[in-house]
Structure formats: C-alpha cells, structure tokens
Design a protein around this nucleic acid. Structure first.
Lengths: 269, 269
DNA sequence: GCTGATAGTTCCATTATTCGGAACCAAATT
DNA sequence: AATTTGGTTCCGAATAATGGAACTATCAGC
C-alpha cells in the first residue's frame, strides 16, 4: 500500500491487507479482539491511520453492525457477528462429523473434550463436550489460542514439516503464559519431534496453570485442513499416567474422525 | 448506486448498501445465511452482479477467511466468523448482567430460558440456560428468528408504537411456520395490543409446532436496545396454565435485568 | 476423440470509493 | 474566556472496485 510495510511486530496475524475489505477486517480484529473496549482515540493510536480515514472506517463497521458504540463512545463487537457465526458453526460439516466421536471420547475419559482447527499459527476451537458440570458452556467455542502452547495446536503442527513450522513462527514472540510454555521455535520443534514419534501431543500446563491435556492430530484427506482432538482436565485429576492411558483413545478418536470424513466427503466428487 | 434500487422483496433485511463494505456484507449474508451451500453460479443467479465483479468479491471474502470453498467449489461460512463472534459474546455486558437472572428463572421454572435482542425485525438470541438435559448447547445462540412469531420478538416489539411496527413490517411476507403463525401485520398488532396490556407475550406454537413460551420485554434505559427474556418448553409439559403461572416470574426477571443495567451502566457517565 | 455447452477465471480501461490533510465542532479543563 | 482534548465533516487527489469481454477448464452428448 504505502509506507506501513512492517507490521509492528507483536501482531503477527495479518500479512497483506487486501484492499478495502482487508483493511476493514484488520481494524475489526483490532477492536473486536482487544482485551478491553477502546474509544476512538485509543484505536487511533494503535492503528496508524489518519483521523478522518479511521473515523469513516469505524462508521462503516458500525453501520454494518459489525461494531457497536456504547454510551461512553467505546467500540464493542456487534451482535451481527454472532448471527453470522452461528451459521458458520451449524453448517460446519467437519464439526458435525466429529461430534459423535467427541461424545464417545468424553464418555470414555470423563473429562472435557475439545475439537480445534489450525488456522495459521492459531488454533480455533470448533467444539467442546463436557461432562456433568454445566459450568460455562459455549465459553471456549470460537476461541483462538496460539498453536505452540496448546495440545490441539501442537498436534496439528506436527503434521507439517519443520521448515513450514519454522517459517510460520519466525520472528514470533512466544508469550510465556506459564513457566512451562515453550520459549521459542527450538523448544517447539523439539517437542514436535516427540509428538511425531508418538502420534500424540501433551500440554502440561503450558497454556494455563493447572490444566493438562493430551491431543492427537487430524488431517483432512485433501490435506488442506489440519485439526486436533484433545482431552483436557485439571492437573490434580489428570495425572501424567492418566494422560498416557488416554493417548490411545484420543488417537482412535482422531482416526475415526478422519475415516468418517473420508467416507462421507471422499466418494462424492 | 445504479439501477438495483428495489431489493427483490423477500430479503427485507438490508436497505442501503453502504459502499464497498456494505456490498460485501450483503453478499456474505446471502451466502452464509442461505440454507444450503451454493456454488458460484448459484450465487451469480441470486446476486445481480456481473460475473467478474462477483468473482472478485467472493475471492476477497475467501481471502479474509469469512467464506471458505469446499472441494466441490461450494461456498461456506468461514471459521474466522467464529472467533470474532466468540469475543462479541464474551464481551457483551448486557448478556453478562442478565445471566444470573436467567439462571434464577431457569431454576424457578425448570424449563429453558432464552435472552434475545431485537435487531430490526429479527430477534437474535444472546444466551440460553437449560436444565439437566445437555441436548445441543450453543444451538440457539446467535440464531436470528423473525420477531413476529417468537415470544421474545413480540415482547420486544410491544415497546414500540404501532406506527413503527407497521412501518418496519410493511410489505414483509409473513412466513407460515405453523398454523398458528400470524399471517400479517394486522394479526401481529392485535396480539401486540394484548401484550402491552398484560406486560408479557405468549408464543403458542407460532414458530415451531409443539413449542410454547412466555416472554417479557426489556428496554435499555437509553432506549436504544430492545430485548426480551422467555421461558420455553414443549407444549405437552408447558400448558397454558403453566405459562400464565410463569408470566409474573418472567416479568420479574425482565425487571431485575433492567434494574441491574441501570445501576451498573447508568451511574457511570 | 470431437463439438458444443456450461462453469469458472483473468484482464484492463473506465468509474466510483476511499484516502487523508485540514478545517470544523463540542465538551471538558484551566 | 481561552485552551486542550475528543470527535466529526469536507473535498480534491489517490486508489481500488467495476464490468464487459476474452480466455481457460470441465463436462455432456455424440
């Protein structure tokens, strides 16, 4: 576009901002995914754009219902996003195919089961099946977490070769969520080598203190989508032994999902 | 813009399509909210745009992850929508404030409780609290339904005056979901008059056969947002007597939510 | 395999939209 | 009243979207 080639580091999400839509979506990300609601000036300082331009862009997003302004002039994600997303979820074939297998895995282990897909260097959780406790359903669904510190993410990455992983994570600053979080690509690659050897990945409190999981990779037959299933639980209940014990179950679940995908999506075309 | 002023009736959703973003979002709606996955030509026949233009627009949406193409060349809603929406939901203050009241109402009635906001002539469900059964959580959240045939929708509409309702529903074709669905604005306004008198709305199998509910309106203090709470259940369990019995509880829930909003949002600014 | 038809993609001069600096407006602050 | 801060509007210049047409699969029937 113009001078702003170098994406101010931290935000290693978007690379090229394709035309008008790209710019607006980048802005939407900035506002909707921020951790606190921002006002016009806050956004102005983060997005290097002239005032007039930014103002018009925000107005357009608001007009479309993608953002909303509260009474204090703070910008918040709009509800239109919700209705779009509910379709995205309901109509997702992969999720639908995986669901029964997630349920089975949940029953076998008694712990929470997650399904997530890899999108770049992030994992987006597509579904979640939990046991009795009706804590906060929905919660995790749609959430994006870094691949390098989640079981599902590392499992999915393990299908790729080192070069790709290194390339996609180059220059990324690994955030130290806990003391066990990988600190850089080298750590990650070492872990991934082990994951490839075993066929499953562990997350031992790497993303959240006190939370462990074991995950297995899923790849679509066309190879365009990488995903993972995991069983997650609190460390006091989910011991290393339990994780080892569940690993084969998780692998079976992943394998069954892949098989179902092949038979339900493969033959057609 | 150009000739296409009259929005081919049925789709009484979008009126003016603001610039580039508006057109793209209209297209996204068309594709993402359709009932079945469409291929390029299907979309072409629905959106009156030249081939080249449409193709580029779809490409942009795909590049941004708002749409995806499956192996058969059909366009589907993309997962990026999910991650945006999860923030929209998690950060929604109204939902957070209402939640405890929804839980209480659920406990008191034992049936499923919904929270929905009015957006134009549609209701978008923001939250849902159900009892024991872990049927299909999430399901309803984000879903958009016509206001005229849902309890929450009619309750929310009842806060507006007849003229506004008539204006917004003018020319709208009322879809006959069941034999009890209102057939036109006249029916709707008659029902709404009763709702205003009582302070609560019934839905007696108007949207879905065998499903009944009772709902009460919620209006934000600034009057910019209309919403509703409802208790819903299967007709065999949720008799007319039960609905009458719950009506005051639903009104109390609505009132408490409004009060909480006032005290938690009001004083600030 | 050939022929015509249908589906999808690319090109590029024209046209419409966005861009962005600056002026403007409105509230708070001194 | 004067100044600062936060937000909005304007309009010529820069840029991106448009859309007709040419082009390339892919497919169906012969």
């Amino acid at each position: 576009m113009n001078v702003k080639q170098e994406d101010t580091m931290g935000n290693a999400r978007r690379v090229r901002e394709t035309g008008t839509l790209g710019k607006l979506m980048a802005l939407l990300d900035l506002v909707a995914l921020s951790d606190y609601p921002m006002r016009f000036t806050d956004i102005l300082s983060l997005s290097d754009q002239p005032r007039g331009t930014l103002h018009r862009q925000l107005s357009h997003l608001v007009e479309e219902g993608l953002l909303e302004i509260d009474r204090d002039g703070r910008y918040l994600p709009g509800i239109r996003l919700l209705s779009l997303a509910s379709r995205s979820w309901a109509r997702n074939e992969f999720r639908a195919i995986a669901e029964p297998h997630l349920r089975l895995l949940q029953e076998r282990t008694g712990e929470t089961v997650h399904l997530g897909v890899l999108r770049g260097i992030e994992v987006i959780y597509l579904d979640k099946v939990e046991g009795r406790q009706s804590v906060r359903m929905y919660s995790q669904i749609g959430n994006a977490s870094p691949a390098y510190c989640t079981g599902v993410g590392k499992a999915a990455l393990s299908v790729l070769d080192d070069a790709s992983i290194e390339a996609s994570h180059a220059g990324l600053q690994f955030h130290a969520y806990t003391e066990h979080t990988h600190r850089g690509v080298a750590d990650l690659l070492a872990d991934i080598a082990a994951i490839r050897a075993h066929g499953y990945a562990f997350d031992r409190e790497e993303h959240e203190s006190g939370i462990c999981c074991v995950a297995a990779p899923i790849r679509s037959d066309d190879g365009n989508m990488l995903a993972g299933v995991s069983v997650t639980g609190p460390a006091y209940r989910v011991t290393p032994e339990k994780l080892e014990e569940w690993a084969p179950l998780v692998r079976v679940a992943a394998a069954s999902i892949m098989q179902d995908m092949q038979s339900r999506l493969g033959p057609k075309r």
